[in-house]
């Protein structure tokens, strides 16, 4: 077995020092070591977006990032968006607009949408659809998800 590497990363604001084998992905470490299971495992080829998290300000498919690559970095997962038990306006908009059916893709969708709004506070429908195309929803809530992003953007603008 290959030796492990000591890494430090800040996850949802909390500093974590862990020993990881180099071949383990950020998704593995989040789910198995840190037990943050909001990032989901599905396709493992960067197609579905269920494992989306934010690394140093940008969304990534955490199934395609080795944990060692993130040493010294900052990670935000779906669990890290709400503060003190209060949903973000975006999360609330997901519920109000009916963007959640089975919910399995939703942590990834919320993270992607959160990053999209951070980058572009007033996106057009087209920009939302392009920006979230890397997050598959088989329940087909795409319209409701874009409605939620638009509602959250409006809410922010107010």
């Amino acid at each position: 077995m290959t030796a492990t590497v000591a890494i430090t990363l800040r996850v949802n604001g909390r500093l974590r020092s862990i020993e990881v084998a180099p071949h383990r992905t950020l998704l593995d470490v989040l789910r198995d070591d840190i037990r943050l299971t909001g990032a989901k495992e599905c396709c493992l080829v960067g197609e579905c977006g269920a494992c989306t998290v934010i690394v140093d300000g940008r969304t990534v498919d955490s199934c395609l990032v080795l944990a060692v690559e993130v040493d010294g970095g900052e990670v935000t997962t779906a669990e890290g968006l709400a503060r003190d038990g209060t949903l973000t306006p975006l999360q609330q908009a997901f519920l109000d607009e009916g963007a959640v059916q089975c919910g399995f893709c939703i942590p990834g969708q919320v993270v992607s949408a959160h990053a999209l709004l951070a980058e572009n506070p007033d996106p057009t429908l087209e920009e939302i659809q392009e920006g979230l195309a890397g997050n598959l929803c088989r329940c087909g809530c795409y319209w409701q998800i874009s409605d939620a992003v638009i509602a959250a953007a409006r809410n922010d603008a107010r």
Binding site: G46, E47, R58, D61, V65, A115, L116, A133, G134
Partner: peptide, 9 residues
């Protein structure tokens, strides 16, 4: 080149 997540990496 792929989705936003892919293009970010």
């Amino acid at each position: 080149v792929g989705s936003v997540q892919i293009r970010n990496r």
